[in-house]
């Protein structure tokens, strides 16, 4: 029975992950049914209106896919059942804007860009924000800690769009150091060459900087207040009475314990950071899901928007599951029960 608790914890996290996916996808099923008109017809009408090239065959096939996903034939439960059936087959039909490419292919192509940008930025922001926030919380009387605190107070409430826009304007228009848009320079292809890597990093720098600043500021403030509470915990006071070195107390007593809620926090905030990444990609025309979303909205590609919504939910839920399953590595109370 030694591993019983750990096993139960994992099972519970997997269950939560499935619940997130279930609720999220159910909402994507419900939303179109709130529309005053038949969503399929209005979607096709919108697509026609947006002046895209309309091939009768394309329209027919898309209508079939959309009808299966969102058709109003049969009872609501039958519709719901069909919806899931189609989803589990991982078939969302062809994209309207780039017919006949399947929606799934478009998403698959964009996904690595978003995952790459989001994961690196989220991790860097988390690490830097927590480290500096912890130090600032511990040395809260110092001038630099207060200055940083004021700075982060101003950064924290800024919407991702505004931060991204300001950074774009500053470093791509006014001081044109970094490229305005795209994921790679034109003519550069995926390969393990110096040219490819520098181009990749150069293009990723500004979008990732804007993500890091906004979410890093939030982690800073969170860690700052956590630390200022933990320094009065009994085990910290006791270690101070025992003359344990400041360095040890800061890292192994204060920060180490403050880290636990911040790992949970990362899992809880990931959905919000994902929203930010979508917007940031749009601002920098970064070729990930965010930019794909913009194109889908712009060209009225209904199926693609549904696909992106569903994949965002599944992707975020799985990423959170990974963080949750890694949590026991940080917390011995779950690891050794």
């Amino acid at each position: 029975m030694k591993h019983g608790f750990f096993f139960r914890y994992c099972l519970q996290r997997v269950g939560q992950c499935l619940l997130v996916i279930f609720i999220g996808i159910t909402i994507t099923f419900i939303i179109p049914r709130l529309a005053p008109t038949d969503p399929v017809e209005s979607a096709i009408a919108t697509a026609n209106m947006s002046g895209q090239y309309t091939h009768p065959e394309a329209v027919a096939e898309i209508r079939r896919a959309l009808t299966e996903l969102y058709g109003l034939e049969g009872g609501i439960f039958e519709q719901y059942f069909n919806f899931w059936k189609r989803l589990l087959k991982a078939d969302l039909g062809p994209s309207y804007s780039s017919f006949p490419t399947p929606v799934m292919d478009l998403i698959r192509r964009s996904l690595p860009w978003t995952v790459g940008l989001l994961l690196t930025s989220a991790f860097i922001a988390w690490a830097i924000g927590n480290l500096i926030g912890g130090l600032a919380g511990y040395f809260s009387q110092r001038g630099w800690a207060r200055t940083l605190g004021v700075f982060c107070m101003a950064i924290r409430p800024t919407p991702y769009y505004i931060m991204a826009f300001v950074i774009l304007a500053l470093f791509a228009y006014i001081l044109p150091i970094f490229p305005l848009s795209g994921g790679l320079a034109i003519g550069v292809h995926f390969s393990f060459t110096w040219r490819f890597i520098t181009s990749l990093l150069k293009h990723a720098f500004l979008p990732s900087l804007s993500l890091v600043i906004v979410s890093g500021g939030a982690w800073f403030l969170g860690m700052n207040s956590l630390v200022s509470n933990i320094v009065s915990e009994d085990y910290v006071v006791y270690a101070e009475m025992g003359g344990v070195s400041n360095r040890n107390i800061l890292f192994r007593y204060v920060m180490r314990n403050a880290l636990l809620p911040q790992v949970t926090g990362l899992a809880l905030q990931l959905g919000m950071i994902f929203n930010g990444a979508l917007i940031t990609e749009y601002v920098f025309s970064y070729p990930g899901l965010g930019y794909l979303t913009y194109n889908a909205v712009f060209s009225g590609d209904y199926g693609l928007i549904i696909g992106i919504a569903i994949f965002s939910i599944i992707g975020v839920a799985l990423a959170i599951l990974i963080i949750d399953l890694a949590y026991p590595l940080f917390d011995p109370r779950i690891r050794h029960r």
């Binding site: 915990e233 009994d234 085990y235 006071v237 006791y238 270690a239 009475m241 025992g242 192994r252 007593y253 180490r256 314990n257 636990l260 940080f330 917390d331 011995p332 109370r333």
Partner: peptide, 17 residues
Amino acid sequence: ISCILQGSMSVLNPVRK
């Protein structure tokens, strides 16, 4: 000088052996 504190239940760092 050493101490044994009130609330000794929580004077040991919970994440340290």
